[in-house]
């Protein structure tokens, strides 16, 4: 009781917090880029003519989306070494983040591809493009544009989810928060400050992604037809 807040005790550790923030940002951006790339490949596989490929993707998505991220991390970091696969905490963490979030980006991007009308593909083919060219020049940009808001939400969720990799010892913002509170015992203040940092990161992602969207999809003058997807955390 009679708790006296002492934020000064937290701000003393600002270099650590700054470093953690940078790690969190770097991890998030790197992982998100991979998630969009793999998600695109996954979405293509999910729509491929090969049944086995389709089923593999469906099973992957269902398993990943129906088990907790934390447990997946434990399997990657503590479980895989018994198969002779030894990953350091950072690699296991980033790998885990990418595996988990790609399940979501795959579904999001698939919805985007589905929203592109067949006539767009035919129109590309009719001027002599190959299927690969049609995908690259005609399909992918409008498809991503259609689901851009969902991708941005997923980006935020991914960034927030990175705090969980502290559980396997990755040194990012959350684990620095733990470290600081075990040395200064100002737990509440530390977590309050760090929560504010995460909130700021969330707003930054939304803001900068909106700006990026305006550059990437500058052609849209009307409000885009939004496809809302159930987004998931954790």
């Amino acid at each position: 009781m009679d708790y006296v807040f002492q934020f000064r005790e937290v701000f003393r550790y600002w270099p650590l917090l700054a470093e953690g923030t940078v790690v969190t940002i770097a991890m998030s951006i790197g992982a998100m880029v991979l998630c969009v790339i793999f998600g695109t490949l996954g979405a293509l596989a999910r729509r491929s003519r090969t049944m086995i490929l389709r089923w593999l993707v469906i099973i992957y998505i269902d398993i990943i989306r129906n088990t907790p991220f934390l447990v997946q991390l434990f399997i990657l970091f503590f479980g895989l070494p018994s198969l002779g696969i030894r990953l350091d905490a950072m690699s296991a963490g980033v790998l885990g983040i990418v595996i988990y979030n790609t399940a979501f980006t795959t579904e999001i991007i698939r919805a985007g591809l589905q929203a592109i009308h067949k006539s767009q593909v035919e129109s590309g083919l009719s001027i002599g493009m190959s299927r690969v060219q049609v995908f690259l020049y005609v399909v992918i940009v409008p498809a991503l544009q259609k689901v851009y808001p969902a991708l941005v939400s997923q980006f935020v969720l991914l960034m927030l989810g990175t705090s969980i990799v502290s559980a396997i010892g990755v040194e990012e913002l959350t684990s620095y928060a733990h470290q600081i509170q075990t040395t200064n015992f100002r737990s509440i203040e530390v977590y309050l400050v760090v929560i504010c940092i995460y909130m700021a990161l969330t707003l930054m992602i939304r803001f900068s992604m909106r700006a990026l969207g305006r550059v990437l999809f500058r052609y849209r003058h009307r409000r885009p037809g939004r496809i809302t997807l159930p987004v998931e955390q954790l």
Binding site: Y3, V156, G161, I164, Y191, I195, L234
Partner: peptide, 24 residues
């Protein structure tokens, strides 16, 4: 905005410490 803009793990820890340190 706050609940969805911050990590659940951080929310958990904050509640944990607030409730144990501030409640009798």
């Amino acid at each position: 905005e706050v609940l969805q803009g911050t990590p659940l793990l951080m929310q958990l820890f904050l509640w944990f410490f607030m409730l144990t340190l501030l409640l009798p």
